[in-house]
Amino acid sequence: MPKVQVKMTINGREVEALVEPRTLLVHFLREQLGLTGTHIGCDTSHCGACTVDLNDMSVKSCALFAVQANGATILTIEGMAAPDGTLHALQEGFRQMHGLQCGYCTPGMIMRAHRLLKENPNPSEDEIRSGISGNLCRCTGYQNIVKSIQYAAAKINGVPYQEAAE
């Protein structure tokens, strides 16, 4: 089967490459581009560890072929911090509110939360819980992830956030 030329913008950088049609987007990112922050957890599109932002949508990159993303604009966890290294509000929030333990679900969780806050800058707790329901975490029980996202929302909105991590 012939390889296919794909072109996308990933974390602000134009990327061109040849891929097998069956190459999953997650493998393209991890193996061909070395962007290993995006993880594989379940293989069946249930866990969300492979979530990236694609054309302003949260998608599971283990259930998409790289060719389907031809022409797309993609943001991965590696593109979240500012070029000067300043952490994104979500990255800061996850640390401040103890929103991670083993760290394996964290990139997917942050990428999903990023899109959630873009669409709903001031979500309720229930909206956050529904909003991240495509992402599984085995360590935290989600409670501090919710707080991490609330922290980030407050920071992005420029209002104080008082709640302490439990």
Partner: peptide, 9 residues
């Protein structure tokens, strides 16, 4: 249906 990511696609 599904979850948020699945509903985008």
């Amino acid at each position: 249906i599904g979850d948020p990511q699945i509903r985008y696609v």
